[in-house]
Amino acid sequence: MIPEPLKTELQSSIAHAVTRREAAVGVMKRLQSHYGWMTDEAVTEAAELLGLSPLQVEELATFYEMIYRRPVGPKVIHVCDSISCWSMGGETLLQQLEHHLEISAGGTTGDGAVTLLPCSCLGNCGNAPAIMIGEQLHGPITVQQALDLVGRR
């Protein structure tokens, strides 16, 4: 169950939209930040708020890169694997992070704290190799700096 203030906040964002559906992505993102990921419960709650079926929400949730339908750690490192970062050593950076965090790309550390995800261009190509931790862009970045940022050194 989501707390009342959050529910009120979401209802008012839906009321502001031209159609209820228009608010769907915003609602999913807000619920995700509440739960940490887009849980089954969150899908049902989003559906109720938006006047959609859970399946219609699922159809959206599975479409977007930044909606997590599986648990992730409180710290998510997104490592850009697109062309500019590739040209500046992005592949090596990802391998080094896998090595130091002892997980493979897509995984979460044993203590559940850090998730490592390769991702498409972050729009930070001039600062390659680029990563995003939470919603903060970083780059150019070394493996040590990245580990520092998630408290893993």
Partner: peptide, 25 residues
């Protein structure tokens, strides 16, 4: 302002309109 959740196809103008309407893009 509409903040998206990440998919390249959302930049294609008709997919963008679907995305904005809350449909699959």
């Amino acid at each position: 302002l509409h903040q998206s959740a990440g998919r390249y196809i959302c930049g294609e103008e008709t997919a963008l309109m679907n995305a904005l309407e809350g449909l699959r893009a």
